[in-house]
Design a protein around this nucleic acid. Sequence first.
RNA 1: GCCGAGGUAGCUCAGUCGGUAGAGCAGGGGACUGAAAAUCCCCGUGUCGGCAGUUCAAUUCUGUCCCUCGGCA
Length: 310
Amino acid sequence: MSLKIPCVVLLGPTGAGKTRAALHLARNLPGEVVNFDSRQVYSDFPRITAQPTPEELAVCPHWLYGFLPTDQKLTAGAHVRKCRPVIQDIHDRGKTPILVGGTGLYLRALLEGLAEVPDIPLAVTKRLEQQLEQEGLDALYARLQAADPMLAARIHPNDKQRTLRGLEVFEATGKPLSWYHGQQEPASDYSALLLGVWAELPALEPLLARRIDAMLEAGALEEARTAYDKCSDPAAPGWSGIGCAELLGFLEGRLTLDEAKALWLRNTRAYAKRQLTWFRKTPDVVWFTQDGPFLPEKMLDQAKAFLGRP
RNA sequence: GCCGAGGUAGCUCAGUCGGUAGAGCAGGGGACUGAAAAUCCCCGUGUCGGCAGUUCAAUUCUGUCCCUCGGCA
């Protein structure tokens, strides 16, 4: 039984300034940056998903950014499996892993573990999607109630995504998803310092609006166009990202550029709100707001204290 | 100036055969165990454009005024 690997985690809503703070920590600890954002993994959308720029990437090694094609999807489990060896390797080389991102589920899955549910064959998922079309959600939810009453009680009958997930697990494995949840043992491989950048929506909104303009100036539209040439299926996983979907609407002539921008901002704002709701209840976060002294400096002090360095 | 269509929630609009009104989006709050930038839940008093008339009762009918958008001048 080895000791837990110490990690520094930077979390917070989109656009709050995590990347900048991460670089300061990486330079001074020293450390390497590991992504836990479900969208910054797409190789076709470095600007639209606000991945670190080439200059920022040059500061220190960055992991799990921009490696996935638009037509492929990552899952929380797959992300954890990719993350673990990366963190181990950084630690073995005497550096501090700095986890940066905004996908609360991915972070929780990494730190607290995920139930060990086998991969579901694609055929099962496809069949259920087809049945959803034909029989409707009510019928599928009723089947879930029979197959996994514990899970069904916890999710809403309108929740298409979770109803399908519950059913596919039961049909593919013969066991209810809630059974797998019960089997799960708490994971404790990492000792994490959680540093949060907090920004209320009214303060965040103008920053988000400016960031969208900056992204467009940096070539976001050309980025979307190039991605569209590679993958023109609007249902592809990569296109569902905020900004990607709106620019696709413009490219396909469904939206004017102004409409796309307005939608993009609204959707980003709504997303930031959901992130705040999630992170608000995350335990043991040391929160920082953007006013006051140089934020990354204060975070560095915290990180040094946590790691037991002078 | 004339004819027509409208003026109802922040926005787009529905509706009330006369009994003071409701959807979508936005906004606020929340949930979240392999699609999570996803998926989903809860929250709707607003001089129903102004004024007057008819009526027990007008946002609804009538008159008039104001404003917007079409068409004709």
